[in-house]
Each structure stands twice: as C-alpha cells, then as structure tokens.
Computed example of a mutant assay.
Amino acid sequence: MREHLRKRGIRAVIPVPADQKGHRPRRGSRGGRSPTADREAYKQRSRVERCINRLKQWRGVATRYEKTAVIYLAGLYVAAIFLWSAR
C-alpha cells in the first residue's frame, strides 16, 4: 500500500507499526528507507477518524436508512450536535 501511495506522490501519515520496524533492517538493501510520518497530520487524521467512529454509533448514520441525502445530512447534524453538547 505504501509503495502505491509513493508512486502517486502521496506522503504516508501513519507511522510504521512497532512490530514491522525490525523487518526493514533484516531485509538489508531491499528494505529501503523507513518512511517518515508527519506527527501533526497523524494527530488530525486520528481526531477525524475518532469523530467518524463516534458518529457511526448512531444507527441511522451508520446504516443510512434515509432515502434522500438531505434527510441523511439532517440526521448527521443532529448526531453531531448531541456529540458536541455531550463533551
């Protein structure tokens, strides 16, 4: 996946998992350089993913029962308001 992203000019935001760091030196010259991850971008990405996961706890948002996009968006707004006010 990282190779595909590199070919498209997209920088990796996710840090390399700890259990994979040891594999790279073992492969020698075929292991390549360790990709650097942007810590600030990862924090923002993580925050967005956590928000989406919290919104998906709402059944109507997760399954999209509504027939129209306007009604779905209204439900999404209501769920976001409840989550924001519960903080």
Rank of each mutant, 00 (worst) to 15 (best):
M1T: 05
R64T: 05
Q20W: 13
I14T: 14
D38L: 06
S34D: 01
R50T: 10
D19P: 00
G22K: 14
S34F: 01
I71K: 02
R30F: 03
Q44M: 12
S85R: 15
V61E: 03
K56C: 06
R64S: 02
D38A: 06
G60W: 09
A74H: 10
D19G: 03
R30S: 10
E66G: 02
N53W: 07
E66R: 09
S34A: 11
K56R: 14
R47V: 05
G60M: 09
A80Q: 01
A41F: 03
R8H: 15
R30V: 01
Y65N: 06
T68R: 14
A18L: 09
K21L: 15
A86L: 06
R27Y: 07
R50N: 05
H4P: 00
R8G: 01
A18H: 12
G9E: 06
I71S: 12
I52L: 13
V61W: 04
Y77T: 06
K21S: 08
G75F: 15
R27G: 00
D38G: 01
L5C: 15
R54G: 00
D19I: 13
H4T: 10
G22E: 12
R33H: 13
R54T: 08
R30K: 15
I52P: 03
G9V: 10
I14Q: 08
W58D: 06
K67G: 01
Y42Q: 14
H23F: 12
G60D: 11
C51V: 07
G22Y: 00
T36S: 12
R6H: 13
R64K: 14
R87G: 06
V16K: 13
W84H: 10
G31E: 04
R11F: 00
L55E: 05
K21C: 11
V78L: 14
A62Q: 05
F82D: 00
Y72V: 07
S85D: 00
A74V: 09
I81F: 10
R59W: 11
V70F: 05
G28L: 07
V16W: 09
D19H: 15
A41I: 08
Y65C: 03
G9F: 12
R2A: 08
R30N: 08
A80C: 04
W58C: 11
R30A: 14
A12F: 00
R59M: 04
A69I: 08
W84S: 05
R6C: 00
R39G: 03
I81S: 08
